[in-house]
């Protein structure tokens, strides 16, 4: 995992902690990854594992009281301090965000054309209306929105069209990196499939890298180049999407895939328990209370990231390194905490 000069984004040991009444919630706790130009990275994991926090943290969109630490390099330069003026200038022009609910981005009182004018002029003041229209119609065309609708209001569009509008708005300045947080969760199956197809086609039309946060593993398998599996604030497995889906190496990834209901499901399977409280996560491997393969070492020592045969990076003692496992650490962990059936997220 080397930081090559051509990476759009490279994240090293990123931490985002929320201050809560009970102490710090380590929503993102030591995350590292790289993103190449035009690449789509899927981010999956159960609810509350820190996916949204990671995505927002990268864009500096965190709420008051959040603490950020770590190094983020964007296009070879270190990212400016969050909330600084330079950061705001980056957002929109170089960094974009697509939300789950499109109306959070669209102002019901403004025409689509005005949305585009506002977005473009925020970064390039004084651009003529004609030029904005030209740029906007081009992205709208890719999104399948007819130019006849350029002067309509948001409420004149259906849910799927609105989501395409927000994508178009995020793309109009051709940012190098976009975070899409569950962009299709609120949409119907057929429309979801349409949007996913559009997102998957993005790299052909624009050179945009995408961090696609989703609950739907099928979407990742269809649209993403690489996938990162997040558990309790850490990326436990990251690698080529096909490779990870074909032969998942981390027990959490394996269980997640097994518990997903698909057309070929003939029996139900599920992970007992729920993701841990991030204020006080389990010691050692955070997955050990739920892991079917947990060993003694897992309960005491955190596993180290390791590149495995398939090329993915995995954090799990099953893959070694043997040298760091204390004697007897490889024994199965017998005293697993009792997990109630309904102890779920």
């Amino acid at each position: 995992m080397s930081t090559t000069g051509q990476d759009v984004l490279s994240v090293r040991d990123l931490r985002v902690w929320y201050g809560t009444e009970r102490g710090a919630a380590r929503a993102v706790d030591g995350v590292s990854f790289d993103l190449r130009p035009g690449e789509i990275l899927g981010l999956v994991g159960e609810s509350g594992c820190g996916k949204t926090t990671l995505g927002r943290g990268l864009l500096g969109l965190l709420p008051r009281g959040a603490f950020v630490d770590g190094d983020v390099t964007f296009k070879g330069k270190p990212m400016p301090a969050v909330a600084s003026k330079e950061y705001r200038a980056l957002r929109g022009a170089e960094l974009g965000m697509i939300f789950q609910e499109p109306m959070t981005r669209l102002n019901p009182l403004m025409r689509i054309s005005e949305h585009f004018e506002e977005t473009v002029r925020a970064h390039h003041p004084g651009v003529s209306r004609e030029r904005v229209r030209h740029a906007a119609l081009e992205v709208l065309r890719v999104m399948g929105i007819p130019p006849t609708r350029y002067r309509s209001y948001p409420h004149e569009f259906s849910g799927g069209m609105r989501q395409r509008l927000t994508i178009a708005l995020a793309l109009v300045l051709r940012p190098a990196f976009i975070v899409a947080d569950e962009p299709t969760t609120a949409l119907d199956v057929l429309v979801e499939a349409q949007i996913i197809k559009i997102l998957a086609d993005l790299r052909r039309e624009f050179d945009t890298s995408l961090l696609l946060i989703t609950h739907n593993l099928g979407i990742v398998s269809e649209a993403c180049d690489r996938v990162a599996v997040m558990y309790a604030g850490r990326i436990v497995e990251i690698g080529d999407a096909r490779q990870v889906f074909r032969s998942p190496q981390h027990p959490y990834t394996q269980e997640l895939l097994r518990s997903t209901i698909s057309l070929s499901t003939t029996g139900l399977s599920f992970i007992p328990g729920s993701p841990p409280d991030l204020v006080d996560p389990p010691a050692g491997c955070r997955f050990h209370p739920r892991c079917p393969h947990a060993m003694r070492v897992c309960a005491t020592q955190a596993p180290v990231p390791l590149e495995v045969a398939g090329g993915q990076r995995v954090e799990c003692w099953l893959h070694g390194p043997e040298s760091q496992v204390p004697p007897g650490g490889g024994e199965p962990l017998h005293v697993r905490e009792e997990l109630s059936v309904a102890d779920e997220a």
């Binding site: 199956v189 057929l190 979801e192 499939a193 349409q194 996913i196 197809k197 739907n216 593993l217 099928g218 979407i219 398998s221 269809e222 999407a241 096909r242 889906f245 074909r246 895939l257 997903t260 698909s262 057309l263 070929s264």
Partner: peptide, 16 residues
């Protein structure tokens, strides 16, 4: 329209 978990099976689809 159901995305397939198996990356080898996912084929480009004709969506309505």
């Amino acid at each position: 329209a159901i995305p397939d978990l198996d990356p080898d099976r996912s084929t480009p689809r004709d969506l309505p």
